[in-house]
């Protein structure tokens, strides 16, 4: 039965991990705009010479 303690610790760690992930994603603005990232990913850059999307991270 002692294994339950281990399981509880494991499950809580996972849950807290997700909670932190949630906080982080809210903080970095990943929920602010739910439209343009979805569109952006489908857009092909037909000319790749002047690529500028390398520094395409969130600006916050």
């Amino acid at each position: 039965m002692k294994v339950i303690i281990l399981l509880i610790i494991a499950s809580l760690t996972v849950a807290i991990g997700f909670l932190i992930a949630f906080f982080w994603s809210v903080k970095t603005g990943q929920f602010d705009d739910d439209t343009s990232p979805a569109v952006r990913i489908l857009m092909d850059n037909e000319i790749t010479s002047n690529e500028k999307s390398k520094n395409n991270h969130y600006d916050n």
């Binding site: 602010d32 705009d33 439209t35 343009s36 569109v39 000319i47 500028k52």
Partner: peptide, 30 residues
């Protein structure tokens, strides 16, 4: 979505633009 595409490729129209990024929900362009 065409608007997003065009505005994010704005650097091709104006070569001095380093980066342009759309926030569609608040209709903002960085």
């Amino acid at each position: 979505s065409s608007c997003i595409w065009l505005l994010e490729n704005f650097s091709r129209i104006d070569k001095g633009v380093i980066r342009s990024q759309v926030d569609f929900v608040s209709k903002e362009l960085l």
